[in-house]
């Protein structure tokens, strides 16, 4: 039976970009405002879940050709690597550093190594959540 879902597909094409933008905004606003890697990753993965709901697995895999298990592994590696990096400088494990730099366009910006750790957390959350959703929805 063929079902007509033009409205759903058209709405999703726009809404997915809104959700992805909001996820990135949540990821970047962490540390000073509500936000951070974990819930940013959750919102990003909800955008991917919406794509998988509206289209099917084969179509989305053609457009996003990543293995989400590998993305989770890369995220854990990044998070642990940002902790080990502080050991190389003689500090304790997971010691973070920040500083103010004068960048060409942005002016004086606060850059911090916490962003690397949070990026690892976000990648891990995206990979794990999408893998869980795809695994429990398997109907074979």
């Amino acid at each position: 039976m063929k079902i007509n879902d033009v409205i759903l597909k058209t709405v999703t094409r726009i809404v997915v970009f809104i959700i992805l933008t909001f996820g990135v905004e949540l990821f970047l606003s962490g540390h000073n405002n509500p936000g951070g890697g974990f819930i940013g990753g959750l919102v990003l993965s909800s955008a991917f879940v919406l794509l998988y709901l509206v289209n099917d697995i084969e179509t989305v895999r053609k457009g996003i050709p990543f293995d989400f298990k590998k993305i989770a592994a890369i995220g854990v590696f990044l998070a642990v690597g940002s902790g080990v990096g502080s050991v190389l400088f003689g500090e304790n494990f997971l010691t973070q550093a920040f500083g103010h730099f004068d960048l060409p366009i942005f002016g004086v910006t606060e850059l911090s190594t916490v962003v690397l750790f949070e990026a690892g957390v976000a990648l891990t959350v995206v990979g794990v959540v999408v893998t869980i959703i795809l695994t429990i929805s398997e109907d074979v």
Binding site: M1, K2, I3, L8, V15, S46, V49, L50, Y52, L53, V54, N55, D56, I57, E58, T59, I133, L134, S137, D139, V140
Partner: peptide, 23 residues
């Protein structure tokens, strides 16, 4: 929004995430 879509798709087709759509 996502929850409503998932519920209505489960009611209408019986499967939430399809492997390959046939139509």
């Amino acid at each position: 929004f996502i929850g409503t879509i998932a519920f209505s798709k489960a009611i209408e087709r019986g499967v939430i995430v399809e492997r390959k759509r046939d139509g």
